[in-house]
Design a protein around this nucleic acid. Structure first.
Lengths: 203, 203
DNA sequence: ACCTGAACACCGTTCAAGT
DNA sequence: ACCTGAACACCGTTCAAGT
């Protein structure tokens, strides 16, 4: 007896697949159970037979994203270089799929997506010669640096000018002009990360 | 003719007042127009006569919070000390009222709350001797440092242990133990901020 | 085992109607 | 000028009922 391939049958996986498509198109707030059901050609309650809740869909999606971020390859000769490369790779990936931040923040537990990245950083910090609680501290500092920047990068409108600069009581026209202009956020990121790394790692 | 004092009449201000109370109690998601109306002893549509929308309530609240954060006093002898003090003061204020982060992020434009803080930082950076675009860069780097940490501090469960540490392939038991334990996040914050400041400011 | 119709308890917002 | 009742177009979730 040949096992029939059931076509287009609902599974948690296909549900999360379609949820991802919807979120990619319209953001997390576009993911409603009614829309999701319609996209799958089914009525809303059918979803609940396969998956517990909307929250569970987001949780499973976060698990996938965690794996994606964790499987980024690290290149570079020194641990410091590899850490910087890793952070830049994560940044690039998050920019490619901005909903990563939206989902992980909406679902609470904003740090969950980065647990595998944290593991990679731990390895590099160890390779750099740090041990024990010192290594753990460095690991956290780097992850905070990365995570903090990612959230800011995601939540801030880069084109937005600072309001009210004209009212600043500051005699530095060039500063005021520069404050009004958009920032090269990547430069800020690179600079801060390197400053922290230089203080953290030996040499 | 003595002007009568109208008691308990609805104004945009009293609406935002009550909205603040509700948010303090139950978070931003607890702020619904129906609940808000009920707390004010009125039916929902009455609110719309005084204020445009739920979003406008949040926007007005953000304006207030912006002023609160902007009026924090800075103490310290040197610019660097005052910047650190300011950042710590903002952190303390945000921890006292965590909904500051929730509101400013929910309402989009997550950076808006900090525009007056940014002005204060600009002044200190100027006082430290930086000028023009160099000063503007330093200002952003410091604000990113502060903003990034605040979001992480707000979004991360400090008691949450890192899952899956047991599966890490790393021969450093002390590191693994330390990774499992909660971090002194303030130490991470202070360290990173000082590392960045040391690289940014003269001397 | 898998899906539907219908409902429940919510949302933000609008608008004709009242005073 | 200020407020209400009733409605519209949504939510997530449940559950008896169907096949």
């Amino acid at each position: 007896v040949v096992a029939e391939v059931k076509r287009s049958s609902l599974t948690p996986e296909t549900i999360v697949d379609m949820a991802t498509t919807i979120i990619e198109d319209g953001g997390v707030e576009a993911l409603t159970m009614r829309r999701l059901a319609q996209a799958l050609g089914v009525r809303t309650p059918a979803l609940y037979w396969h998956i517990g809740s909307r929250q569970e869909i987001l949780d499973r999606l976060i698990e996938r994203l965690t794996e994606d971020l964790g499987s980024l390859v690290l290149e570079g000769r020194t641990p410091a270089e590899r850490i910087i490369e890793l952070c830049r790779a994560v940044l690039a990936e998050v920019r490619r799929r901005p909903y990563i931040m939206a989902v992980s923040f909406t679902a609470g537990r904003g740090e969950a997506v980065f647990i595998r990245v944290q593991e990679a950083i731990a390895r590099e910090v160890h390779a750099a010669g740090l041990r024990g609680s010192e290594a753990a501290f460095a690991m956290r500092a780097i992850l905070y640096q990365l995570g903090g920047f990612l959230v800011i990068d995601f939540g801030v409108d880069h084109e937005a000018t600072i309001r009210g600069v004209d009212r600043w009581e500051l005699d530095d026209p060039e500063l005021l002009d520069a404050a009004r202009e958009a920032v090269d956020v990547d430069e800020v990121f690179g600079f801060s990360l390197e400053a922290v790394l230089a203080t953290l790692l030996p040499n």
